[in-house]
Each structure stands twice: as C-alpha cells, then as structure tokens.
C-alpha cells in the first residue's frame, strides 16, 4: 500500500517500470524531496537511475505514483507536466546549425512557463546537521559546509547582481540574461555545432533552468564538464534551489560531489532502492562494497569536511563451494 503523498516537494511511490519483458524498476519509492533541496540519485551503471528520472518526468510508462506538492503528476499531460517537473536528458543537444541564443529562445518558446505561482520561495528544509543553513548561506564568507567553500567559483555573487526574466518572456534579451546567469554569454552567437560537449551540456542546462520549473530532474548534468564548471553548475543549482524553492534531483557518479553538495542521496541497485537519506549516513563502506564493489571509507579532512577515500576494487566474495 502506498504511503500518503507529501504535501510539499517531489515524491515517487512504488514505481514499477519495464523495458519489454525486463523489469527495470521494482517498486521504487524516493522522497519526498523538499523545496530548495539538492537530491542525488546514485548507483552503478545499469541500476535504473536514468529510468527513474525518465519515469518521474512521465517519459516512460509506469505503475506507481509521482506527486509534486501533493499533486499527482500522472494526471497531467506531458507538456503541462514538464512545465512543473522538467527532465534534462543525459544526451547533449544535437550539434545543429543554430546559434546558442536561438536554442535558448526555442526552448523558452515551445511552452512559455507561467510565472511561479508561489508568492515567496520556500527556504530549504533545515536539516538536523544544518544542511539547510548551509545552502542558504552559499556565497557568503562563512560557509557552514565543512571544508568546502560555499561559492568556490564566485558565481553566486554574480547571480545575485542580475535580475532574471520571468518564465513568460521568450525574447532574445531573456535568453541572453539566462546565458549570462550561467556564465556562458560569450557563447551566445556561436553555433551549437561549434561547441564542445561540455559547452553544449551547459546550454542544455541553461535551457532547462530558464523554463523555471518547480522540480528539475537532471541526468548526469556534470558528465561532460571540467571541474570548474562542475562546481559552478552546483553553485547555480544550489542558488536556484535556495532562491526559488526549486527541487533538484540529479543523477551523479561523483560520490564526493553528492557528499559535499546534496541534502539527500538515494542509492539504486538493480532497480531497487538500497538506501536513502543524508549522504554521509547512506554512503557507508558496507554499502559501497555491496553496490559499487569498491573498497572505500568515509574520511574527515583537515577542515572537517567528510569525503570518500577509495582504496580500490573490493575483493570478490569467496565462492561458497
């Protein structure tokens, strides 16, 4: 029997998804992911992470329920659903002959998002370990994130200076404002086919953010980015979450990124949830050995930050024979 839907945030309950005869998700329940939080979906290759995000966004048929702020998203048609809960696929935008600013305009034009309904953005839920506070102080001098600068790229200050257009404007100036927000305004008049994979990934992310959804589902958004832009994108997501109450769910392979930047981690293995909760309680050596087959442990850095040290591949279990 399903748990009652949460009134706030994003929640998936008892999801079953199959590809042909093969069951990919076996009754997966995740969330509720509260407004203003960053939530990692972790797991080895082929564990069903992308399928989970695609199912939550309505792109694949499923059995189960996905709710956002208490509303059953399954009752909405796909265009209306994407307006509230937007999925960004892992694949990059095709390298077509179109400028970046036009790609932005097109993404905003296909379905102008309405101005957010909520009167004021909800702050992130204050977590017992002060994570909510951590996110809310991003960009200020005193970060509460142990060992990691709150705004390592100085991006948040830049974000705060510019006012972003609301969801209804789809003109070139609105597109440009979002490119500036992402720090890629210099690419505005470049053709998509001239860009590197990482740059196209940033354009795709800018397209998704500019739609101002209530929840954003990102499939490996950092996979093609260099370390600078990885940090910068995480800053941006944290900023958006804090300022607008955006719910961010992102598939990550970088466990330390999840540990350092996310409020929750849900670990999938073979289509089932292995563990869910704050990353430092979820990512235990036993789980990493069982799910990822690596020998790793949680360490504490000089400035108090927690990080994973990977020693190598875990030895194969002894044969029972």
């Amino acid at each position: 029997m399903n748990a009652p839907a949460s009134d706030t945030g994003l929640m998936a309950q008892n999801l079953f998804v199959s590809h042909g005869r093969r069951m990919v998700l076996h009754g997966v329940t995740v969330g509720p992911f509260g407004p203003g939080t960053l939530n990692a979906v972790l797991g080895p290759n082929g564990s069903g992470k992308s399928t989970l995000l695609r199912a939550m966004s309505g792109l694949v048929p499923l059995r189960g329920a996905v709710t956002l702020d208490g509303q059953d998203l399954g009752r909405l048609r796909l265009p209306a659903r994407s307006q509230r809960c937007l999925y960004l696929p892992q694949s990059l935008p095709e390298p077509m002959q179109i400028t970046v600013i036009e790609a932005m305009m097109a993404a905003r034009h296909v379905m102008p998002a309405p101005v957010r309904q909520q009167a004021a953005p909800s702050p992130p839920a204050a977590l017992p370990d002060g994570r909510g506070t951590r996110v809310s102080t991003i960009g200020t001098a005193g970060s509460t994130l142990p060992g990691v600068a709150a705004d390592p790229t100085g991006c948040a200050g830049q974000i705060a200076r510019g006012s972003l257009p609301n969801g209804t404007s789809s003109g070139p100036e609105a597109a440009l404002a979002w490119l500036e927000h992402m720090g890629i305004a210099h690419l505005a008049m470049r053709g998509l086919r001239e860009l590197s994979g990482g740059q196209r990934q940033l354009v795709g992310l800018a397209q998704a953010l500019s739609r101002r959804p209530r929840a954003l589902l990102l499939d490996e958004p950092l996979s093609a980015l260099d370390p600078y832009y990885q940090q910068r994108v995480m800053d941006l997501l944290a900023h958006e979450a804090r300022e607008t109450g955006l719910v961010v769910v992102l598939v990550l392979h970088d466990l330390n990124m999840a540990l350092a930047r996310c409020h929750n981690a849900s670990v999938l293995n073979d289509g089932r949830i292995e563990a869910s909760g704050p990353p430092e309680t979820v990512l235990t050596p036993a789980l990493l050995r069982r799910v990822y087959r690596i020998d790793a442990c949680l360490d504490t850095g000089a400035s108090g930050q927690r990080f994973l040290s990977v020693r190598g591949v875990a030895p194969a279990p002894r044969s029972m024979a």
Binding site: L59, S82, L88, P89
Partner: peptide, 20 residues
C-alpha cells in the same frame, strides 16, 4: 517552427521541454 527547431535538438530533449 519553434517546436520543429527544438525537435531537431533531439526527440527526448524536445519531449522533456514540453513539446508534444
């Protein structure tokens, strides 16, 4: 035209951006 431009970026991307 806008929908077709987005579709040209990839079918899954277009669907995820709300194009029917």
């Amino acid at each position: 035209a806008w929908g077709l431009t987005v579709l040209r970026m990839g079918e899954e991307r277009a669907a995820s951006l709300g194009v029917d």
